[in-house]
Design a protein around this nucleic acid. Structure first.
Length: 432
RNA sequence: UCCUCGGUAGCUCAACGGUAGAGCGUUCGGCUGUUAACCGAAAUGUUGGGGGUUCGAAUCCCUCCCGAGGAGCCA
């Protein structure tokens, strides 16, 4: 091994000699004693440097160890209730590896624009570290959930030849002699064929929307996980979505106690995420909203205020189903009991987080799909491969997509999506 | 694209027609248990750009630029 210790293992090393390398998160001094809050492996530990216990070079290093300087330290791990974290390092020698000059992010407040300009440094802040740890756990849990249920990971392409759902604005890029390629806004259409190959599949990767959205709930580049399963009917889909959300929230509660505490997240709200989620047909949701005084009418889509109103009527995530087909994508299966309705599902998270999941049973009948493509004015030639899935052994299938950043924002209790992804891409910003 | 609010020191903000200020950060000094440490001192400004009103504009008006929040769209 390298001979260097890491902060997370210190609890088991009390009384032993420790060597650490890391960054100066904070420094305080008081005459002949100094304190450095050292950051390493995403955690921090307090170093105690007493003038009479260290040589002159170490004492000089303390004077030069400005915020975010890199230091290397040798000392003894000591349990002390006065230390944040309970364990601190009594330093025997301290060396400056690199002195940082004029680190821009200070312990006081900063505005959003300033922090976004310094996103590469902002990541070091305790709050950002906490959110990133939750994101990491969510991503791992997404893979584990699918693996445990026999789903295979199938990567969808990012460069695609045409619009997936038609109307959304896509990012465009030249593609040799084939005109323009577009950055994927969903992996779903590529996943449906894979469901015929492997049965239960999912994709998980970045997606791109060139909509000029300028709100805290939108990013130009975001990560989406999309399961798709052969022979999964609509009822099975709602149960899958419910299990998925419960599983992910459980994993965050189980493994992210420390970041949640740092974020002062009210975990009782997360513990309330239990089955069954209320299921509300679109028509019932309209009635609910009108009962609250909304002027919304049957056939209108929900905006952010409507979603919030619906979510606030319940103590856990809400599933809204059976939307009018006119509000939904061309590939959604009509309800056999009322073909004007789609077997579509949205999951709305509480606390103003809005829609986190959108999904449906897919049309498996070739002729119906063809007529829907025509109704939506989509170029039939470009969808021949997609129609093939209905030509060669068609099958009932369903799937959904979940926006990872919205889910992380909900778990972490952060209001703005830009804090839930390492390098957010927003309408007016692509730096750093 | 539309609506609302904003742009003053490195950062966060105050001054709202009459000499440009504070806290934090920085630099220097003090302090043996600090927790965004504390105490003392110092340095730091073409008040976003341009035009106008006025004896006088950071302040009022016009315009452009930039930022934040929201709408639509969606995850």
């Amino acid at each position: 091994m390298s001979g260097w210790n890491s902060i997370p293992e210190l609890g088991a090393l009390v009384g032993e000699e420790i060597r650490l390398r890391g960054w100066v998160d904070r420094r305080r001094s008081s005459g002949r004693i100094g304190f450095i809050q050292l950051r390493e492996s995403g955690a921090t530990v307090q170093l105690v440097i007493s003038r009479k216990e260290v040589d002159e070079a170490s004492w000089e290093a303390l004077q030069s160890a400005t915020q975010e300087s890199t230091v290397a330290v040798t000392g003894t791990a000591v349990a002390d209730p006065r230390s944040p974290g309970g364990v601190e390092i009594h330093v025997s020698s301290l060396a400056l590896v690199h002195g940082a000059d004029g680190y821009p992010i200070t312990p006081k407040e900063h505005g959003a624009a300033f922090l976004m300009d310094h996103r590469h440094l902002w990541l070091r802040s305790s709050r950002q570290r906490a959110v990133l740890r939750i994101r990491s756990e969510v991503c791992q849990a997404i893979h584990d959930f699918h693996r445990e249920r026999g789903y295979y990971l199938v990567d969808s392409p990012i460069l695609t030849p045409a619009a997936c759902e038609g109307t959304s604005t896509l990012f465009e890029t030249p593609y040799f002699d084939h005109g323009n390629a577009y950055l994927s806004q969903s992996g779903q259409l590529y996943l449906e064929p894979a469901a015929a190959a492997l049965g239960k599949v999912y994709c998980f990767g970045p997606t791109f929307r060139a909509e000029k959205s300028k709100t805290r709930r939108h990013l130009m580049e975001f990560w989406m996980v999309e399961p798709e399963a052969a022979f999964l009917d609509f009822k099975g889909l709602t149960e899958l979505a419910e299990d998925f959300v419960v599983y992910l929230a459980g994993r965050v509660l189980e493994h992210c106690a420390e970041p949640l505490k740092l974020l002062e997240r009210d975990t009782s709200r997360l513990e309330a995420i239990r089955k069954p989620f209320p299921r509300l047909r679109y028509a019932e949701a309209i009635d609910l909203l009108r009962g609250q005084g909304s002027a919304i009418e049957f056939g209108d889509d929900f905006g952010a205020p409507e979603e919030t109103s619906i979510a606030e009527a319940f103590d856990r995530p809400v599933m809204v189903t059976h939307y009018p087909t006119s509000l939904k994508a061309f590939y959604m299966q009509p309800d056999p009991d009322d073909p004007t309705l789609a077997l579509a599902l949205d999951v709305i998270a509480p606390e103003g987080c809005g829609e986190i999941i959108g999904g449906s049973q897919r049309i498996h009948d070739h002729d119906l799909l063809l007529s829907r493509l025509k109704e939506h004015d989509l170029p039939i030639e470009a969808f021949q491969w997609y129609l093939d899935i209905r030509r060669y052994g068609t099958f009932e299938h369903s799937g959904f997509g979940m926006g990872v950043e919205r889910f992380v924002a909900w778990m972490a209790g952060v209001p703005h999506l830009r804090e839930t992804i390492p390098y957010p891409r927003t309408m007016d910003r692509i730096y750093p």
